[in-house]
Every structure is written in structure tokens, then in C-alpha cells.
């Protein structure tokens, strides 16, 4: 390729011939407090008044401590916090504002220009620094004593190593626990929070039940973790309105459907159910799911439908799960 000839130098920047000039310092303006005694005296009084206000605030907060005690009545917390806080605020703010006001109005008004220090030290200082380092090396024998130097490098290199093992305790890795919930074949659907099992006949048209697996209420250590994965909402709609794929036809019971309550976006509980539109809205980021159409996402940032819990009815008429969810509930962590 033949280089083009230009009659300007490399670079296309337009360089103005008129550089912006350094405006220098503003002319010094004499303060009113320096010009008139009246102003000076009034500033004097203002600063004193601010300090007095501070003193009043401190005394008032002591008074408020005794006058507004916190009792059994929760409402007393409010009065206690408010008056105590106001007193302490006045106490501190009065001192601060008073001191700044004092400095600005009454202390000497001399303007000082201080140039920045040069980054590079003088030749003398630099030579002296090198001298000190050489002396230190000589005295400690750092270069001379090879055994000590190398063993020290080894020690320093190994020192952070234990931390790797300590951080291991932040785990254990979740393993496949994110892929499974408490639901299994035959687990009864129960009401949150008391764990009463739900009969299919209890779920009337337009009803919504907030459901936990039976037995969850009795768990101790893992109750909240299990609940966070297994929470389900149960709704009955007119069976004619349900749009079901062939393989999911057997997952509902007479118009009763159960879906995971955990949003597939970032895991908020999706529970705002509108019984006429069958919209299910997540309050965090407004993901909207169509409950009668397999909980498909119809609005918002969620990327996949809510997982459906296959349900059936046992011999006593109670709703039971046919199995666990067929996919992990909540955010699609495996894609992140």
C-alpha cells in the first residue's frame, strides 16, 4: 500500500492557538466582619449562640433520657428515639457549626498559596537513601547470607497457603441440593404456616393456597432452606380454561394446579395472583406468568416458566405430590 502524502502532521486533533490562560488567584475580598465592628460583634454573638444551643441540646438529651423512657408500650420507642436523637444532634451540630462559623468569620483572613511539592527528591536526598539501603544490607547480611535469604523467601511463600484451606470452610459446595426439593411421591400438600394438609375439595374455584410440603413445619435445622425451595402456590381454575401440554395433562387435578412460588428470575416469592386474568406477578421485578398456560412468562425479566409440581389425590381426598419438580426451582443458576 502506498502511503499517502499529507501536508499536516500525524494526528487529527485541532489545536487552538489561543490556549486558555491560567486565571490566577481571585483578588482578595475583605470580609464584612473585618470592615465593621457591628458585624464582628454580631458574628461573635452568633458563634456563642451556637455553642449555647449545643449546650442546651446536650442538657435536653439528658432530660429526654429520663422524660421519655422506653416501656412495654412499643410506641414509647418512637418518642424516646426522636427526642434523644434531636438533643444529641443539637449538641454535636451546634459545636460543629459554631466552630466553622467562628473560623470563617472571625479567625485571620490571610490567604496562603502553597505550591505542590516536587515528586523527585533532591540529588542529595536520593544519594543518602541509597547509602542507607546499602548500609542496611551490609549490616543485616541480606545479600551475603544466602541460606537465611532463601529460607525466608520459602517461609513467605508458604504463609498464605493455609488460607486456601480455611476458605474451604465457606462451603461445602451445594452439590445437587439446588436441583432437589423436599417434594417426593406421596408428600401431602399442606397449608403455610401450620402444616394442615389440604383436601382437593377445600380448594374452591378462584382460591389460592400458600403451600408447604407436609412435615416441613416439624423440621428444625433446615426448615427455612427447605421452605425456600419447596414453597408452592395452589390455585383452582375452570378446567376448560387450562392450556396443558400432552405430557402435563396428568399433572393437574380437576383444574387444580400447583406451581413453584420461587421466581425463575432471582428467586423472589411470586404470589400476586389475579383470579380473573390468571396473571401471577412477581413483586420484585414485575415478571408476570400466565398461570393457565403453564406459567409462561408474559412480561418481565424472568427467562423460563415457573416449574410445575405434578399433583394427585390420595385415598382420603388429600392433595399429594406425584414427584419432585422436574427441574430446579428458582433462578437458572446453571446458565450464569
Amino acid at each position: 500500500m502506498k502511503a499517502k502524502k499529507h501536508d499536516y502532521e500525524a494526528g487529527l486533533a485541532v489545536i487552538s492557538t489561543e490556549k486558555i490562560q491560567d486565571p490566577g488567584l481571585e483578588p482578595h475580598r475583605v470580609r464584612m466582619t473585618d470592615k465593621s465592628v457591628k458585624h464582628e460583634q454580631s458574628a461573635n454573638r452568633q458563634v456563642a449562640a451556637l455553642f449555647l444551643l449545643s449546650a442546651f441540646g446536650s442538657v435536653f438529651s439528658i432530660y429526654a433520657y429520663f422524660a421519655f423512657p422506653i416501656t412495654e408500650d412499643l410506641a414509647t420507642v418512637r418518642a424516646n428515639n426522636l427526642w434523644l436523637g434531636l438533643g444529641i444532634t443539637l449538641g454535636l451540630l451546634g459545636i460543629g457549626i459554631g466552630a466553622v462559623h467562628w473560623a470563617k468569620t472571625l479567625m485571620p483572613d490571610a490567604e496562603v498559596t502553597e505550591e505542590r511539592k516536587q515528586t523527585r527528591g533532591s540529588e542529595e536526598v536520593r544519594a543518602r537513601a541509597i547509602e542507607i539501603i546499602k548500609l542496611a544490607d551490609q549490616e543485616s547480611g541480606f545479600t551475603r547470607r544466602k541460606l537465611i535469604r532463601r529460607s525466608m523467601y520459602g517461609a513467605l511463600a508458604l504463609f498464605p497457603l493455609p488460607a486456601i484451606f480455611f476458605f474451604g470452610d465457606l462451603g461445602p459446595n451445594p452439590g445437587d441440593s439446588l436441583r432437589h426439593t423436599m417434594w417426593k411421591k406421596g408428600t401431602r400438600l399442606a397449608k403455610d404456616p401450620d402444616g394442615t394438609p389440604i383436601k382437593a375439595s377445600d380448594v374452591t374455584l378462584g382460591s389460592i393456597f400458600h403451600v408447604i410440603p407436609a412435615g416441613l413445619a416439624e423440621l428444625h435445622d433446615d426448615r427455612l432452606n427447605e421452605k425456600a425451595k419447596a414453597a408452592v402456590i395452589l390455585v383452582r381454575v375452570n378446567p376448560a380454561e387450562l392450556i396443558e401440554t400432552e405430557e402435563r395433562k396428568s399433572w393437574s387435578y380437576d383444574g387444580i394446579v400447583a406451581y413453584s412460588k420461587i421466581c425463575t428470575h432471582v428467586g423472589c416469592p411470586v404470589a400476586l395472583y389475579e383470579q380473573q386474568t390468571h396473571h401471577l406477578l412477581c413483586p420484585c421485578h414485575q415478571s408476570t406468568f400466565d398461570l393457565v398456560d403453564g406459567c409462561k412468562v408474559i412480561f418481565g425479566p424472568a427467562a423460563r416458566p415457573l416449574p410445575q409440581l405434578p399433583i394427585a389425590v390420595d385415598a382420603e381426598g388429600y392433595l399429594i405430590a406425584q414427584s419432585d419438580f422436574d427441574q430446579p426451582v428458582g433462578p437458572s443458576f446453571w446458565e450464569r
Binding site: K199, D202, V203, S207, I208, V235, Y273, Q275, Q276
Partner: peptide
Amino acid sequence: TGPQNMPVFNDAN
């Protein structure tokens, strides 16, 4: 009764 879009909370629920 679950008026309008509010779901029903019957006496079993």
C-alpha cells in the same frame, strides 16, 4: 368472596 381479581380465601383455607 374474592372480589374482582382478588382470589378467594374460603373457610377451609
